[in-house]
Write a protein that binds this DNA or RNA. Sequence first.
DNA 1: CTTAAAAAGTGATTTTTATCATTTTATAAA
DNA 2: TTTATAAAATGATAAAAATCACTTTTTAAG
Lengths: 235, 235
Amino acid sequence: MSIKGIFPIDKWDFQSESVLFDLPSNDLLLLMANKSEQVYQKGEIIFREGAYPSGIFYIVEGKVKKYKLDKDGKEQIIYVANNGELLGYHAILSEDRYPDGAAALEESRIAFIPREDFLETLDQSKILSKRLLKTLSHEFAVLANSLSMFAQKSVRERLALQLIVLREKYKVNFQAGMPVAINMSRGDLASLVGTARENVVRVLSEFKEDNILETKGRKIIVHDVEKLIMIADYK
Amino acid sequence: MSIKGIFPIDKWDFQSESVLFDLPSNDLLLLMANKSEQVYQKGEIIFREGAYPSGIFYIVEGKVKKYKLDKDGKEQIIYVANNGELLGYHAILSEDRYPDGAAALEESRIAFIPREDFLETLDQSKILSKRLLKTLSHEFAVLANSLSMFAQKSVRERLALQLIVLREKYKVNFQAGMPVAINMSRGDLASLVGTARENVVRVLSEFKEDNILETKGRKIIVHDVEKLIMIADYK
DNA sequence: CTTAAAAAGTGATTTTTATCATTTTATAAA
DNA sequence: TTTATAAAATGATAAAAATCACTTTTTAAG
């Protein structure tokens, strides 16, 4: 059984991979006319919060964290973007600066599309504009969910929830029953869950005790998603 | 001096009032062809989270809370919408159900625009579509800010911040130096700040001690916004 | 392989926040 | 005005989370 039957994954996941999917070839050609691809190393910054946007990015392969830094430099991860997702379009569309920064969570291949090409294609393509409206409204729902999660759930519940979501993102060539390794540092996990590193480690140990998961170095292998779903949803 | 010189209010405020402003009269006529206006009493529900959207709403006069309920019925306010703002368009655009509920915070006059009229106007009006893209991307920035606020700031800091924002929303015919009364129950304030009612009361008492504000019954009159800005921004 | 540096993990303690019990004050209907 | 009801306020205590100090393990460079 897919996770969709037992957990509402789309409440926690953007759908920006559907923006370019099967776009009319005219539109796609125009959009991609001057694209340039680049490989970002793990930890490398793609753009910084507050910078003026020069274009949008498409994740060909890899994972990217979108985050904000507070004035003490403490990082809060807003979202983990995966293969096929777009980055940086909010700033262009809102005619403002990047509302958050983006950095590679692992070695990632990312295409850059200049601002002008994006805006021109948008101007010509009703379908692109419709899809962006759809994606952005869905993102609103996702962020509203995250918001109330932070306001109302405990660290234990939030960690359980993020592990469920991350497990989906770290699936590659997944087959039922196969283990999934979440390869993320405790620091990043802490900044995603919104707590201190030590608390993440402690709750992970509890989860190990309860045979919910095992850790191999930094890798987290989830064995019992159902239990995580229980913990995330119920007290 | 306006608050904009000393506090980035647009980081915390949507801009959906600009969506319909000065829209070409053709578009506006089409959109408003079948609008119907209704008065909602304080506390009355406009739409419920999870319901299928039948249209969008325009706040002619009044204030509306957008909120989510957790499974124990505990409320989390996502946003306080004011005069001139639109409601309910996310659900229509994402072709999904309402991601949050909406209820009147005070007696409010609200216009309803049927789904079909909204979609038809959107289909014909490039400018409407552009404005929605701009508004939605800006909302992303606002929610990202709220998210990291919840994850990183203390109750005291969050309350200070929300009081600054609410003070702007409760300004009517404001002139420099004039007091502004925030007329909101401690319960609603608590669900906006994401804490228990008792904590809101306690922090408000501290603020009274420090001559930052006074309370008259449920009304909160802010005397020293600068101090609130200090508290919200700095430890 | 060895080893230095970085990351993960543990324990003790403090601080913050939530919860529960109760009193005081405001509000609005009779 | 009186009075019942709801909301606000206060105090004590419990629970959750943050912080600090430290040890152990992992990782990757030489």
